[in-house]
């Protein structure tokens, strides 16, 4: 596609990436660098596509065959400063969080001591924030690194509360 729009909580943003003949890289994890994909990538099932580009960040969305979606939020230099997910099973956070995963895993294990069914989780430290929820096998959440957060960008602009 050469242009697409995505309605993010009342804010419609347009993709403006055009014609860059860059080979699409594999998914990058939180905190890692990623080169920007060609905008002509089809928005077909399983494809990665550029769904939004603004001055401060770009959103890469991975639409899975089951309709699940995982998004990466890229700073202008291509570094992934945030990820978010809407999935129909628990997403593979070890891939999405990358080098931040051990921090998450330690916190999650601690939370798990509580036992029983758990449908809400938040980890929040000076660098890593992870918000994760799930109900009826339908999961959603987001994670970001504070040090990489673009100055002046509000979480609300990403559709987060």
């Amino acid at each position: 596609m050469t242009s697409s729009s995505l309605r993010l909580r009342g804010l419609t943003v347009a993709a403006v990436w055009v014609g860059c003949a860059v080979q699409m890289p594999a998914q990058a994890a939180l905190g890692e660098m990623r080169s920007l994909p060609a905008a002509s990538a089809p928005a077909s099932t399983g494809a990665q596509r550029s769904v939004a580009a603004m001055a401060r960040y770009t959103v890469q969305e991975d639409l899975r065959p089951d309709g699940s979606r995982v998004r990466e939020y890229l700073a202008p230099d291509g570094r992934v400063f945030a990820v978010s997910w809407n999935t129909l099973y628990k997403p593979n956070l070890s891939v999405m969080l990358g080098q931040s995963f051990p921090t998450y895993a330690t916190a999650a294990q601690q939370a798990a001591l509580r036992g029983g069914i758990q449908r809400q989780f938040r980890h929040d430290n000076s660098e890593l924030v992870v918000v994760s929820t799930g109900h009826l096998n339908v999961f959603s959440g987001h994670a970001y690194l504070r040090s990489l957060w673009p100055q002046g960008l509000s979480p609300q602009a990403l559709g987060w509360e």
Binding site: Q110, A111, G116, I117, F121, R122, D124, N125
Partner: peptide, 9 residues
């Protein structure tokens, strides 16, 4: 540093 959960068990 804070890790919290709710809605459970």
């Amino acid at each position: 540093t804070e890790t919290t959960v709710s809605g459970s068990g």
